[in-house]
Nucleic acid binder design. Structure first.
Length: 801
RNA sequence: GCGAGUGUGGCGGAACUGGUAGACGCGCAUGGUUGAGGGCCAUGUGGCCGUAAGGCUGUGGGGGUUCAAAUCCCCCCAUUCGCACCA
């Protein structure tokens, strides 16, 4: 036969599939539906990365397999195209970001098609399309109306030289990425989404998610629920109370001092009573100078200052305790104040040692003269009045009862998760659809006026003074108030990139709908997403954010399911050939297009799946690609052996074992072993002069989801008129899988000494007799008494002497 | 520091509920395809000893359970990821 020339034949099949819409998802089809979702890419200027291929091939294989299994498959793709790199490139090259985005999307689309992905390209969504962000804005307005979008102050990274707000990425190490001048923390009024209102639901929803335990625990960790109590400490002389959150109210009798964050309001409210207010203010200033980076990274020095003139009363012991200000306490977590229990917390212990404070044992154990005793999940209370002798769990309950009775506190739940800072001072993002009116305050843009589109401008560079570039566009900013028609101004901040990606999977179900984000019946047909694959790095942020929006939309009766995703997997990174993370600066980036040109898309797909454990990081190996190509060459050549001759029983058995193995491996994301099994089959099959046409065809179907082009071509060359897109996926016949012979290992004291071949399912007694009578074994036993014989049918016989 | 994962040939990686360690691929070696190179085919390829038959040894290290351990238990080491002054 002719040579295998992937370049020609792959183009041919891609044209055929895409022109004939072979991967079209049909709304309301009678077939069972299957929704396979991959994280849509950010269309960067450098084009696709081999990592994208790895991220998509898993569900590509599943999608193709599901079609062959009779499912109506929705396997969509789109572009998460708002964002900084495009904007920065646009500013530098002086090309409109719209144009940059469109060009990049074109390149990506070509690359996706050249890889033979079975996406339904009629459902492509683009987050920067006004028809799309219309609904991103609509969702924001619903959040706003429900009180879940609000304004508050925060600190932003600000470069005084560029006069621009920077992302964390642009201010690594406290320096501006562009001009290297120092970055300061600047207070700014920005938008927040109240994701904390959904903390409990987001946590509970994890139960229904099918995923690796690691992915669940990372999300749970992010949400960070802790149960404890709020306790009120009086501050005599002032009219103030210090409220602390603690997970361990049982240790109240051991609280010998208190620590508040430098930002704590008490410092302002009790100012006149604090005699060393000057020193405190100096400390506050120092703390403010520290970036979040320094405050969280430089953990060694425990600095702090004692408040002179005021003290607090421990509501348990009734003793007065000193109050400190220290930056190891964060205003953003809990109440911004803690009761310090130095006996049983290492940080409090270190602090107490530095300032020579009382360290009191309240849970039995350890040696407090050396270190804090922190093994306190269990234990017995001491030195604690009415709690003495109680186990920890009971003591927590008793203390809460006491606090409630005394009106000194109550049981409380606290979350680590903070509200979502929802703003960017940039041009290339969704405008936040709010109008600021002197009379009416913040007014949402009426829904019928959506979308609020980005104004056409010539300069989209960030404006100075930390404002969005939109702020400088008078004709866009100045609008009448929708309520009172008075003079008003548009909000000029745009949304963060996480916005558009929080609901894109909903739009795929009805991408062209002009009246709604998606038709409810279509959502009902397609949701939930049956399988969602993406990067490990998105497990916390993106997945949680999108789950939050989904929960909210469910409460608004916009979507039919509580949770958006049924199953989540995450692929491992592909590292450079040098074992380092691929990056432009290291020059170790592998371009998929090059590999496709040299070896073909089927080879690339196959190699990437074969490269290693799907969920683990693995380095790229160029000669490994050759191996994948060699395999396809063998498959191609095997065509010459096709005949109507009956196959040897061994090959038939192997075929059915291969069907079973490959199918199972694919479902378990074990693509590397699935391919190994396919390779083994070809290696064995080519040892025979012929292969039966049906056997070969079955093999092609099995290989099709992984290497669709070559298998379509060979199927056609077999004379079959129908393509393989909906050809039934092979199912193994269990009766054909069983071998009639078994190799039995005979070992003596656990060491393999001989192997024998016997008929399948020989009973234990016979097997033992055969084994013991083997000459080699006789020799090894050397007439020593046999103590014991263990027989595992079809596997081994172990003789103990 | 806490949590999760990983550790197996020269390399990527296999090994089901404990039952032939190293599947499959790469690389390498020898031979063939009668010029070379490539390609392809065959054979071999954990280490050590041995011409060979064969033997010993071997899954990060140390101990244990078991007829039998890469797999289970305990202690250590290394490494990756996540969270990180979380009260």
């Amino acid at each position: 036969m002719t040579q295998y020339e992937p370049k020609k034949l792959e183009k041919k099949w891609q044209d055929y599939w895409y022109q004939n819409k072979r991967f079209e998802a049909i709304d309301f089809s009678d077939k069972p539906k299957y929704y396979a979702l991959v994280e849509f890419p950010y269309p960067s200027g450098s084009g696709m990365h081999v990592g994208h291929i790895r991220a998509y091939t898993s569900l590509e294989v599943i999608a193709r397999k599901r079609r062959m299994e009779g499912f109506n498959v929705l396997f969509p793709i789109g572009f998460d195209a708002f964002g900084l790199p495009t904007e920065n490139y646009a500013i530098k090259a002086n090309i409109h970001p719209r144009k940059v985005t469109d060009d990049n999307i074109l390149v990506f689309t070509e690359q996706l098609k050249a890889s033979g992905f079975s996406f339904d390209f009629d459902r492509v969504v683009d987050t920067t399309d006004a028809n799309y962000y219309h609904w991103t804005q609509w969702i924001f307005i619903q959040l706003f109306k429900q009180g879940l979008a609000y304004r508050n102050k925060t600190y932003v990274n600000y470069c005084t030289s560029c006069q621009v707000v920077l992302s964390n990425e642009e201010s690594q190490g406290g320096q501006c990425d562009r001009c290297d001048s120092p970055v300061v923390q600047r207070e700014k009024d920005v938008w927040f989404l109240k994701i904390t209102a959904y903390a409990e639901k987001l946590l509970a929803g994890l139960d229904t998610l099918e995923t690796l335990p690691r992915i669940k625990s990372e999300q749970a960790n992010w949400i960070g629920k802790s149960v404890g109590a709020i306790i009120h400490f009086d501050v005599p002389k002032t009219d103030q109370q210090l409220k602390v959150f603690t997970t361990r109210p049982d240790t109240l009798f051991g609280a010998t001092f208190m620590v508040i964050a430098p930002e704590h309001p008490l410092l302002e409210n009790a100012r006149s009573h604090i005699t060393n207010i000057q020193a405190v203010q100096t400390y506050q200033k120092q703390a403010k100078l520290k970036t979040e980076f320094e405050r969280t990274q430089l953990i060694k020095d425990k600095t702090g200052i004692r408040l002179e003139g005021i003290e607090a009363i421990n509501p348990g012991t009734k003793a007065t305790v000193p109050i400190f200000v220290a930056d190891y306490v964060m205003m953003g977590y809990g109440t911004g104040a803690i009761m310090a229990v130095p006996g049983h917390d290492t940080r409090d212990y270190a602090f107490a040692k530095t300032y020579d404070l009382e360290i009191k044992e309240v849970i039995l154990g350890g040696d407090l003269s050396k270190e804090a005793y922190t093994n306190t999940d269990e234990g017995t209370l001491v030195n604690s009045d009415f709690l003495n002798g109680m186990p920890v769990e009971q003591a927590i309950g008793s203390m809460i009862e006491y606090l409630v009775q005394e009106n000194r506190g109550f049981k409380a739940i606290n979350f680590k998760m903070k509200d979502w800072a929802f703003n960017r001072q940039r041009y290339w993002g969704e405008p936040i659809p709010i109008i600021h009116c002197h009379q009416c305050g913040m007014v949402p843009v009426p829904e019928e006026s959506l979308p609020v589109t980005l104004p056409e401008v010539t300069s989209f560079a960030p404006s100075t003074d930390g404002e969005s570039p939109l702020a400088g566009i008078e004709e866009w900013v100045n609008v009448p108030c929708p309520q009172c028609q008075g003079k008003a101004k548009r909000e000029t901040d745009t949304m963060p990139q996480w916005a558009g990606s929080s609901w894109y999977f909903l739009r795929y179900t009805d991408p062209h709908n002009a009246k709604k984000l998606a038709d409810y019946d279509r959502l009902k047909y397609w949701l939930p997403v049956d399988w969602y694959n993406g990067g490990m790095e998105h497990v916390t942020r993106h997945v949680i954010y999108s789950r939050f929006w989904h929960h909210f939309l469910y409460d608004m009766n916009v979507v039919p399911t509580k949770e958006p995703y049924k199953k989540r997997t995450a692929q491992g990174l592909i590292l450079g050939p040098d074992g380092d993370k691929m990056s432009k600066s290291k020059g170790n980036v592998v371009n998929p297009t090059e590999t496709i040109n040299r070896y073909g898309a089927d080879t690339l797909r196959l190699y990437i799946l074969f490269i290693g454990d799907y969920e683990q990081a693995t380095p790229w190996n160029e000669s490994g690609v050759k191996g994948a190509r060699r395999f396809l060459d063998k498959v191609w050549r095997l065509f010459d052996n096709v005949s109507n001759q009956k196959d040897a029983p061994y090959l038939v058995t192997l075929l059915h074992q291969t069907i079973e193995g490959v199918s199972n491996d694919i479902e378990q994301v074990k693509f590397n072993t699935a391919i190994a099994k396919l390779m083994t089959f070809v290696n064995e099959a080519q040892k025979y002069p012929t292969i039966h046409k049906e056997t070969y065809l079955t093999f092609l179907k099995l290989l099709n989801p992984l290497a669709p082009h070559i298998t379509e071509e060979l199927n056609q060359r077999l004379g079959n008129a129908n393509d393989l897109v909906f050809a039934p996926f092979p199912i193994a016949d269990p009766s054909q899988m069983i071998e009639d012979k078994a190799v039995i290992v005979i070992s003596i004291n656990g060491k393999v000494r001989d192997k024998i071949e016997v008929a399948k399912d020989v009973d234990k007694e016979t097997l033992e007799k055969i084994a013991v009578s083997q000459p080699k074994i006789q020799e090894w036993c050397d007439n020593k008494p046999i103590k014991k014989v263990i027989v595992i049918p079809n596997k081994l016989v172990n003789i103990v002497i």
